[in-house]
Each structure stands twice: as structure tokens, then as C-alpha cells.
Design a protein around this nucleic acid. Structure first.
Lengths: 206, 206
DNA sequence: GTTTAATTTAAACAATTGTTTAATTTTGTA
DNA sequence: TACAAAATTAAACAATTGTTTAAATTAAAC
């Protein structure tokens, strides 16, 4: 599944347009025009529009299990580890926000015949690492035992995405102006809020 | 803006299909077929496909400010009020989940020329009521002053929607089988998780 | 019962969709 | 330089898109 320079260039354009206007809302001619290639190149390189999306998903969903485990193996306190995990996850999904947006909408459809194996695999690995970490903290008496572990990740990712999907609303609420200050806001304020939330939940849940 | 029985029947079919396959992924012929009407009726009743969506949004986004305020005016403790607010918001967005899904998708687009006034108005009212409540709690020393108030609602709604968008994944994780147990899960487990989270955040945030 | 208005219909509209074709150009190799 | 493979092109394809038309049917008003 090695992708050429040209293929990657096309996928980046496709990612942007799919995230902006949806998979069905984007035509292959739009992509070809913006990527400055001939329409037929999409079928030539990827086989079809659908397979092009699958190629994008598989490309973006490379393993982050290793990075997550390296955070947990560091010699830090439990609250510090929570901060690190949250900061890492938020940074990661913010970087891949466009692909995640496409996934959110395509995956939640009933009919769609797109292959989401890589995404589900990542989600599964992700969950198992978090679960082991929280259970260890519970055993050591640091974390509350009243926490619903499978719902921790939805709170982290959900908070980010609800903010992102409504960024027009929240940027006006926070008086943010451009894309640069959005990155800054995510990296500082939003990350901090989620860190506070998850730490409070894990430690004080009742 | 009074909608006839027939118009409502069409809108319900449209809501279901838009949520399942997206606005662009649903054709007016699909809607007309499923609603058992002639295609031309959509233009006849609503003017266009786009205006039909707007009619749906305006219909579903009726004011819940009043209900929110009635919760806050009850003679209950602050933590109880948090529980009530969360339960109410979750119930409400779960009921309107299909329309919210359409909104999340369409509103986050750059280009789209759909009128989201009613939705934004509700979001604004919603926020102002929550803000006043939290600030009052802070002044009385019940809530932490280190909370980022505008990000509380994203955590509530985001947790719900990330769960909902990935329900295929989480229902298998929780061993849920059908739609009935999904409703039950949302009403009990998911609501409880969000209540725990928001209470921990508001009271113990550091 | 007649007339007027509202509703419903099938058909047609031009535009756009994803994909394929077959010819041409470019690139790499011997 | 000559040849083969890869890349690129414009054109065509059938299917589907949202919307409009004008005729037909139904309902309401007088």
C-alpha cells in the first residue's frame, strides 16, 4: 500500500474537500480541478472515489498505540499521566481532524460500504491501553472505582469534536479570529479544560 | 410557518434519511418514494430541497430555554441541579439526535448557505442560562472558579454525540443489542457518566 | 351543481454525477 | 535512438440529480 508523492498530493486535496463538503458533497471533478490533475487519474490511481477515501483513512490511521504506551511508561504521577494522555490525544485528533470528521459522518451511516477496519482497530487498541491504565490506578487507590471506563475516551474526543464542529459559534464566543489562534486555543485552553475534566472525573467521581 | 400534517409526515421521512445518508447523500426521489408522495410535492410544499431542510431545523429547534429555567428555579441543591440539567440536555438531544446530526454536519461546512438562525439562537440562550447558573454557584463557593464555562456544554453534548456517532463500536463494547437497549443505555449509564463528569469538574476542578 | 382553488401527477428539463475508453504524451530502460 | 511501460488527456457513457411544466384530479366555496 505504498503511496506515491502524486497520490498523497491528491489525497490531501480530497481530505480537505471531503471534510469541508462531505464525501457525497464533493465531486471527483472538484478534486481533480483543485489537485490540478485529470479526472481519470482518480480511477487510474485508486480505482474509484470510494477506494480513494479508504486509501486516505488507512493512511491517516497509522498506529499511535506505541506513542500512548511510551507516555504511560514514563516515570510520572498518575495525574501527570492523565494530562499527558489527554494532551497527546487532543493534539493527535486535532492534527487528523479532517479525516476524523469524514469518519464520524461516514461511519455512523447505516448503509455505507466503506472499510473502516484500520479506524476500528486503532479505536480498540486505544481503549485497551486506557482501560489498563485506569484499572491500575484504581487498584492503587488513586482513581475512583465509580468511573465508567469505556466512556472516558468519548468525553475526551467528544468535547474536542463538538467544539470543532461548532467552531464558528465558539470562536465568536471566545473572540478568536483566525486559524492560527484556533490552533493556539486547542493547544492551551481546550486541552486544559479536558485535562481538568478527566482528572476531576477519575479522582473524584462519586 | 404552520406545518400541515402532510408536511410533517414528509419532514419526518426526510429527517430519517438525511441523518442516515447525509443531506447530499439523500435524493428528493428517495424521500418522495419513502414518504409515498410525488417528487414535485417537495418543491410544491417547501420550495426546494434546501428549504425543506431549513423547515425541519426550525421545527425541531423549538425553545427549551423555558424548561431549562424551570429546572434551575426548583428548590434543589447545586449538585442536584447539575444532575437535572445534564439529564434534561441528554434526553433532549437524544430525542432530536437525527436533526442534531444533520446540523453538526451541515453547519460545520464552509460553503453551505443554509439558515441556522434558530439553532444558533437556541445555543446562545442555552449557554447564557448555564453561565449564570455556574457563576452563581461559584459566588456561593460551591463550584470551582477554575472552570472554563463555555466548554461545559461541549463536554456534555460532545460526549453524547461521540458515543452516538460511534454507537456501532460502543454497543459492541457494552454488549448492547437493539435500539431499545440503546435508549435505556443513554437514559441510565451514559447520563450518569456525564453527570459524574460535570459534577466532578464543577466541584473539584483544579 | 358550478366554479374556483388546492393538490397531485407523469413527463421533461438541463446539469452533474462517477467511470471508462482509446488515443496521446511522458518517462524509464536497454 | 528505439522500445516498452507508465502517465495523462479529452471525450463519451449511462445514470442520477433538483426543479419545472402543464395537465389532471380532488377539495372547498358559493
Amino acid at each position: 500500500m505504498g503511496l506515491s508523492e502524486k497520490q498523497l498530493q491528491i489525497l490531501e486535496v480530497a481530505e480537505k474537500l471531503f471534510a469541508e463538503n462531505g464525501f457525497d458533497g464533493t465531486s471527483v471533478r472538484q478534486i481533480s480541478k483543485e489537485a490540478d490533475i485529470n479526472v481519470a487519474m482518480i480511477s487510474y490511481y485508486f480505482g474509484s472515489k470510494k477506494k480513494m477515501l479508504e486509501a486516505l483513512l488507512n493512511y491517516r490511521m497509522s498506529d499511535f498505540k506505541i506513542q500512548l504506551e511510551s507516555i504511560l511508561s514514563k516515570d510520572t504521577t498518575y495525574p501527570e499521566k492523565v494530562d499527558d494522555i489527554v494532551a497527546f490525544v487532543v493534539m493527535r485528533i486535532h492534527k487528523n481532524r479532517r479525516t476524523h470528521k469524514i469518519i464520524n459522518f461516514e461511519y455512523s451511516k447505516d448503509s455505507r460500504s466503506i472499510n473502516f477496519e484500520k479506524y476500528l482497530q486503532q479505536k480498540d487498541e486505544n481503549y485497551k491501553v486506557i482501560e489498563a491504565f485506569v484499572k491500575k490506578g484504581q487498584k492503587e487507590g488513586v482513581f475512583s472505582k465509580k468511573v465508567n471506563i469505556p466512556l472516558i475516551v468519548p468525553t475526551i474526543m467528544g468535547t474536542y469534536f463538538h467544539f470543532y464542529y461548532n467552531k464558528k459559534f465558539y470562536t465568536s464566543l471566545h473572540k478568536l479570529t483566525n486559524e492560527i489562534s484556533l490552533d493556539e486555543f486547542v493547544r492551551t485552553t481546550l486541552t486544559k479544560h479536558i485535562q481538568q475534566t478527566i482528572k476531576a472525573l477519575l479522582i473524584y467521581a462519586n
